[in-house]
Each structure stands twice: as structure tokens, then as C-alpha cells.
Amino acid sequence: MVTWTPGVPLNPIDEFFQRETVLRRPFSIGGLRRRGATCEIDIIGRTIGPGTRFLGSMKPGDETDILGPLGRPFIPVEGVMVHVLVSGGVGFPPLLWFADRLQRERRRATAVCGARTRDLLPLTMTAEPDSGGRETMCASEFAASSAPTIITSDDGTIGMKGTTADALTGLLDRLGNDAAVYTCGPERMMRRVAEICAARRVACRAALERVMGCGMGTCQSCVVALKDESERGWHYELCCTHGPVFDAARVMWESHA
């Protein structure tokens, strides 16, 4: 005898067991193209658990539903020469969306994208990135918005060997700190980026990631601790509705430096 569930392949059974997820998964919007009453949305992610494995197993034509747009996006800081977009791993999608906005507003953008190794950086390279940490039109996703890109990898398998923090330091030196920084990626990386910016009095906005239940401000799970002038010195705000973009100078980081 075999048992099966309609629509679920007979194997692997592990996949079926692990699909008993209940909550939605939050993703950044990487790109958005309107076509009449419909629109195409770019979502880029990595398989890290049962939810993303399920989404990754979907085929063209499969149906699902989305709830959004939710939260507050990156907003350009006024009065700076260059807008610097710093991402780690698969943190770049909201910065792609933002690069498109910056181009439409005729603002200058430069991207810094890092990963531990080449395979963990799902960008399309049209040319080998500079190994010395100089920006070039190497990544087609950012080049589409006229943004040159610096690529870094911890192991040197692509671009400059080092971290996005190293590349950002060099870039801000060259720009004389006449820049604003927008970042999305692992919390440890964003914390380092925020510290570099704070030391140079460069504005920094960070798109944070938290465990979210609803995305609509009701479950109260995705709290971010932000510094304030109160006696306690901080308060919680919700990542889903108040964020996910926050002034990095106010964030009390969860990771250690």
C-alpha cells in the first residue's frame, strides 16, 4: 500500500513532512515592472529551510499568493555626491530596487557587493570585477541602473579579496566621505558598515532582517531595539512596519562586532 497527497509527489517524503509550514516568508522586492493591471516582481533568495525549499521547488506557472508591499523602503539622503549601496550575500535585492529609483531621479550610485565566496553571490557578471576594489560596470543587475559595482569575496575567488567593509573604506576615502550609505546583508556586516559610517559622519541606512510572523504589525515579534533619549536609552520598533529600513546610527545591533 502507498499513501499520497494530491499534488505532492510520492517522493521525497522528507520534503512533504517539512512542508507543514504555516507562516509566510518575508522577501525584499528586487525589481518591479508594471504591465497594465499586472506586474512582475523580482524576488531573490537562498534556500535555508523548509519554507524557502518549498518556494524554491515551485515551477513556472505554479500559483501562490503574496502580501505586500509592506514596510518602508530606502529613501535617498539629500545633499550627497554618491549613494553607496553595500550588500552581503543575498542582501542585494532591495538595493537593486533602490538603484533603479536613484537612476530615475538622476542620482549617482555605486554598489559594493560581497560574499564569502564566488558561489554565494548570485549576480550576473558581464566582466571580471576589479581585484583591486575599484568600481566597474561588471554586474549587469546594477549596470542596468548605471551603477558601477565593487565585488569582494572573503576567499578572493571573485573581485577583491576582503570584506565589503574594506572596500567601503577605500571608496569613502576616494569620495572624501561625500556620500550616503545604504546597506542590507548579514547583521554583523551591517554593524561594521554602520561603524565605519558613524566614524566618518556619513549617513547610513540599514535594511534589517528579523523573524517575522505577520508583516503587518500585529504579531509584535520582529522588534528592533533603537537608541533614544529615554531613561532606559532605547525602545523597540517593529521591523515589518516601522522598518525594515532604519537609520543605522540608532540601531542597537544584535550581533557582536
Binding site: F17, E20, Q220
Partner: peptide, 23 residues
């Protein structure tokens, strides 16, 4: 009440755990 420290929720099979702490 500011509630508990994060993480405050966790998905489990066919459900979720929460410890918001009456924020």
C-alpha cells in the same frame, strides 16, 4: 510593557511558538 527580548516567535511544524511577553 516592552515585552520579551527577540527572538519572540519560532515556526514549528503546523504551528508556531510565541513569547511576546504581553508587549
Amino acid at each position: 510593557r516592552i515585552g520579551n527580548e527577540p527572538d519572540r516567535i519560532c515556526e514549528v511544524r503546523a504551528g508556531m511558538l510565541n513569547a511576546i511577553g504581553l508587549a
